[in-house]
Amino acid sequence: MTRILFSDKLDNCIARWRAAGLTVFGPVKTDTLSSYAAIEQASDFDFESVLPDRSIKDLFFPQTEPMLRYTIKKRAIETEDFTPPNGKRIIFGARPCDASGLAIDDSLFGWDYKDEYWIQRRNESVIVSIACTKADDFCLCSSLNLAPDSSTGSDVLLRPLENNNGWVVEELTDRGREAFLAIAELLQDGSDPIAPIADVPEKFDLDTCVAWLQNPENFESKFWKEISMRCIGCGSCTYLCPTCHCFDIQDEGDTYSGIRRKNWDSCSFALFTMHTSGHNPRATQSARWRQRIMHKFNYFPGTFSVNSCSGCGRCSRQCPVDMGITETLQKISTLQP
């Protein structure tokens, strides 16, 4: 016997969660784009797409975030902090790769410096993931020690029923249990069969790739130039990535007053590492692409023991010149370590 949430109860659930003070978010598709956004009713959800175009990162680490307002007066500088918006929320229908992405970035944002914006939003959010029953050619979770039904980063994992009329509920954390207590009486016991999870074939052997990346001799390999020759140096792979977390601090305003903001930045941009002197340690696009791969599969796991990639495949799916992590690691896996 398992606990089941039937789809026809979803509107009731939304009402209960709202009554409990939670804002409900989920995957939403418009004419132009799909993303995670606030919803009003069950019919607003998009459970059909393989995954939203935009990653879940947007809800925790927005492209632009005001940090403080400053005013320079004759004898003093006055500052006023912007605190992250308060509000408990439930993100219903997250993809397991996106939820895993949050867990990956938790280690970074909760490291030596505690990023209050990230941490507060994480603490106030309940992540309810739905195991994937569909995948496309770009999905690669299975190549990264994850799976279409990984529970990493989720507070609750839902497994779709074979009849596509509901989900088997697996509560994973106290935060998840608390949110589902509010809808406890809407759940039913049952033994309905669950749908098989999506088939995501393994695309490369990660250990082989990591061994190659860790060999210092390969840092200057001509492979980097070859693989990135067509890279046009835009930041779309990094900005759609659920785990890319680099940002820049910018002051917007005039000499006397303004707002300090935290804005996304990308290792794809030449300006990212440009020194004041004009020297750029990553002067070429190949050095920048190498950095992105090394960071995700060598440096980041070296510090946090987890790869900075959850296998959503967005980088490859939307690349204007059809590049991406999959192609690069597939090629690396065929090279001599």
């Binding site: 492209q63 046009i232 140096g233 835009c234 930041g235 779309s236 996304w264 941009f269 204007p320």
Partner: peptide, 23 residues
């Protein structure tokens, strides 16, 4: 919806400035 990834600029054959005004 713009996220300032500058893919439009990078994909454009006419955007060849070594240092774009946004940089």
């Amino acid at each position: 919806r713009c996220i300032k990834c500058y893919a439009c600029r990078q994909a454009c054959p006419m955007c060849y400035c070594r240092r774009c005004i946004v940089d």
